[in-house]
Structures are given as C-alpha cells and as structure tokens.
Amino acid sequence: MFDLQKLFVQLTPPATFVQPVEGRKYTLTHSDVTAKLFLDVGYVYNCKAINWKMRDEVLAEWKKDREGRLYLAGKAYVDGGEFRKEVSGLRFNLFQKEIGTAITGIVYGDWPFYYNYPALLDAPIFVHYDSTYPEYSHVFYYGTPRQYVKQISSGFRLARL
C-alpha cells in the first residue's frame, strides 16, 4: 500500500514543475529500514542517491516516440551479469512486485507537473527490466499516470484534471 507520508521529493534546479518536459528525469530510491521513498526530479538522474551495490532504484524519463508523442520510460536494473541467474530471477520478481509503488511515487511526487500538463496523465508508461538474462530482459506496459492517481484513496485531495 502506498503511503504518501513516506514520500520525500526533491526538485533539482534548474528543473521546475513546468520544465523540462521531454527529458525530465526521475530517480526513485528507498530505505529498507524506514520504508521511505525518495524521489529526485530534474534534468539528470541523481547518481549520488543510487546504492551501487544494491541497485534497487527505479529511473524514469519523459521521452518522445517516432510520432512525437510523449511517454514515460522507466528502467529497473535487474543485473549486468554480476548475479547468478537465480538471484537475477529474485530481483526481477521483486521489481515486478514493487513497480506499482514506484510508479505511484513518481506520479504523486511530481503532481504539480501533471497539473501543468494534464494531457500527460494519459501518456503510456513503459518499464524496461535491464538484465543480461533474456528471460528477465523485458519491456512492459504499465498503463498511464491517471491509473496510479485513481489507485490512491487515502483522503489525499487532488485538484481535478
């Protein structure tokens, strides 16, 4: 269950809630101890926030497809060949189990951005699971930001878009 109280957001200048649109990057990390989520929004990923031993972050970026339509492209690092196949399988399954929480954190953490660009609430979300093992290297469709907004019913009031 997503807990808005445990989401902490940092907007890294010169990024604002209006710009950039294309190329807007999200770095979502978490604490296993406190269950807090940390979202950095900016022009670049926050590499300092990434635990390079655990590699359990979720990265995302607004990109344009060939027709010029924006979509949210996420990435989950399963492995780069450093883990046994069984460990990579566990990581893949864990990412799949938790990706909804990660996407919800990204959407809610940047809510003023969607207020400025309400059409993006209906943009597709794709997440690439990056692995050297073909069975764990996939791109999946995860709906739209609007679907993640609708999932939360914790009394948090949002402007209607």
Rank of each mutant, 00 (worst) to 15 (best):
G143D: 10
G100Y: 01
I152P: 04
I50M: 06
P145G: 06
Y43H: 14
T34C: 07
K25A: 09
G155Y: 01
P145K: 02
D65K: 04
R24Q: 08
Y77I: 09
K53R: 11
D40T: 10
Y108K: 11
T144R: 10
K6E: 11
P14Y: 04
Y114S: 00
E98F: 01
D40G: 04
V18L: 13
R66V: 13
K53Y: 09
V107C: 02
G89T: 00
L39E: 06
I106M: 14
Q10I: 07
L90Y: 13
Y114T: 00
S154T: 11
A102C: 09
K53M: 08
P112K: 01
E57H: 14
K6H: 12
F2D: 00
V58G: 00
Y115N: 11
L72G: 10
D40F: 05
E82V: 03
K85W: 08
G89P: 01
S31R: 07
K63C: 14
L94Y: 10
I106L: 10
K6M: 08
Y71I: 13
L4I: 15
W111L: 08
S137G: 07
G100R: 04
R69V: 09
P20C: 04
S137N: 15
T144F: 01
E135Y: 00
D130Q: 15
K25C: 10
E135I: 03
R160E: 13
K36F: 12
G109Q: 00
S154K: 05
R84G: 14
E67A: 14
D122Q: 11
L28P: 00
L7C: 03
E61M: 04
A35R: 12
G23N: 08
D32W: 11
D122P: 04
N93V: 01
A123Q: 02
W111M: 07
